[in-house]
Design a protein around this nucleic acid. Structure first.
Lengths: 305, 305
DNA sequence: ACATTCCATATCTTTTATGTATGTTTTGAA
DNA sequence: TTCAAAACATACATAAAAGATATGGAATGT
């Protein structure tokens, strides 16, 4: 049995007339008769009763009309589904967000734009840290991730730089310098710093170390924060000072002051990482939307990984 | 697109290897490659990524595996459904029961047998009277009906005689003759008779009239019962006496006595009526089961309509 | 570097779907 | 009753498409 048989059968069933049905499906009556005969033989039962003024459906035929119609409909649905998938208009993207990347306005803006343009693609967000997300990208459990760059040498991963803003100092409100507008990093040489463990985001961590070296001191390290956002309450509680991406300053916690760093400030670049062999069309659309957005307002940094 | 494309596609998707898949579907590799290519062109997207050690599914391909599998499965289901229908193993029969026919043991016995043999055929019972059922058979709203024969001249209807039992007298318990074993009909010449209107079951009615004529009197007619079963309570209430099919005597109502008729008793034959052009295979099976049953214990009457 | 694996391409063959011509049956009208 | 028309079936021819065979080319591992 082939779909052709179903198409021809439906035409005859609807016209109740071989000759007209043949015309409708664009062939002659005798081949149509043959095709129907084949179908009836395969099913083992007549589908039509032929009489001299056209045909009627048998009981089996009547039932088969429904079956055939639904089948052909589902074939069409499957076709358009696949086509939409291949155009990136349907499907699913699992997106990871590292640390505080979601606070960077460009990130939710991109998500919003994408959803507006591709409402039928399901977005599955996932909160984690850069290191874990890189692993998830490699093993395929996440399709794209907003991470702190550089992400190191992952051969199959690409990374599109999105934003690159200077970091801010986070001081407790009762810190002697907390009312200043901007402070050089060296002014905090005697303070205790709250940092993330290097594992969580090696790129970010190493930038800070470089910044400390340039400022001419190695800081006292206090508690380690499990994630960027938890640095803020720890500073508020007086456990020490810290350096945070600008976006984190949106978390307006009482007892914390955010200060610009005078001189060369370490930067906290955010990139969109994904597997080079980006499988899904939806993902490719997402990435190209991100590229478009990045090239618009972006500038500054070189494409680093 | 044809079902062939889906079958071939699934083979390749499962083997992840064109050559092996070709072997599995019984063709050579080059034509298989061509068919897959056709499919990909119709869908507008590649389904496989080819590399030198076989192939992998694309995102679209992965999704299409599910669709194709379900489609082919439904095709098979549709096929077996139609085949079962055509063998009378599935389907639906709308069966009418006239008056008290359902009390005749042969009738429920037939239904029981049929259901045991064809459990997947849905039986839709319908209670009515002979006249209405004949009409329902003609206009196609009922497929078969147990009726009181004869049903008169309905050109497209056939009628299979099933049972033909003598009728009984139904007397109120306080009737002077109620303790007799058998009474001739003429003994009730002065009683009031409760009968059905002739419309409901002309065959039965006319038999009674003939019986009265043979007994040498025309009875006083009292109330008309709307259906056979309601004769019983009317007799119990003392509105008169009546003649009922033997099966009705199973309704053991206090205040009613059933007596045999001495001499020639009118009979209440029951038949299974159906359209001569019996459409559904299930119905044909039902009828042949009825025929088999009838010929077994049946005898007596000539095939009347 | 070479052999091997495996899919693609090119071309030929066979099958099968379709086209053309005609037959057969039914039905309605002359 | 006969005849013509309608409509599906049958017979045969043709064209299209599926499939077979032979070969090429890219990737991979020895």
């Amino acid at each position: 049995m082939e779909l052709r048989h179903l198409r021809y059968f439906l035409a005859v069933a609807e016209e109740r007339h071989f000759t007209r049905a043949a015309e409708r499906v664009g062939i002659q009556q005798p081949p149509l008769s043959l095709q129907i005969k084949q179908l009836e033989e395969e099913l083992g039962t007549p589908l039509f009763v032929r009489h001299s003024r056209g045909v009627d459906l048998t009981e089996a035929g009547t039932t088969f009309v429904e079956e055939a119609r639904q089948l052909l409909e589902r074939v069409e649905q499957a076709k358009t589904h696949i086509q939409r998938l291949s155009r990136g208009e349907a499907g699913r993207i699992r997106i990871g967000f590292a640390g505080a990347t979601y606070f960077e306005p460009a990130v939710p803006a991109l998500i919003r734009d994408y959803r507006a343009r591709y409402p039928d693609v399901q977005l599955q967000p996932q909160q984690s840290n850069t290191a874990e997300l890189v692993q998830a990208l490699i093993d395929g459990s996440v399709d794209a991730a907003f991470v702190h760059t550089p992400i190191g040498s992952a051969p199959e991963l690409a990374c599109l730089p999105l934003v690159d803003e200077a970091m801010l100092l986070a001081l407790p409100a009762n810190h002697p310098l907390s009312e200043e507008a901007a402070v050089p990093l060296s002014a905090l040489a005697d303070d205790t710093f709250i940092l993330l463990p290097r594992d969580i985001s090696p790129g970010l961590y190493d930038r800070l170390i470089v910044a400390f070296q340039q400022a001419g001191f190695m800081p006292k390290l206090g508690l380690e924060a499990p994630q960027i956002v938890s640095i803020v309450p720890m500073v508020a509680a007086g456990f020490g000072v810290s350096l945070v991406p600008r976006a984190v300053s949106q978390i307006d916690t009482p007892g914390v002051r955010y200060l610009s760093i005078a001189g060369v400030a370490p930067r906290a670049p955010i990139g969109l990482a994904y597997r080079e062999d980006a499988g899904s069309a939806a993902l490719r659309q997402f990435i190209s939307l991100a590229e478009a957005g990045a090239s618009t307002h972006d500038a500054a940094d070189s494409p680093e990984r």
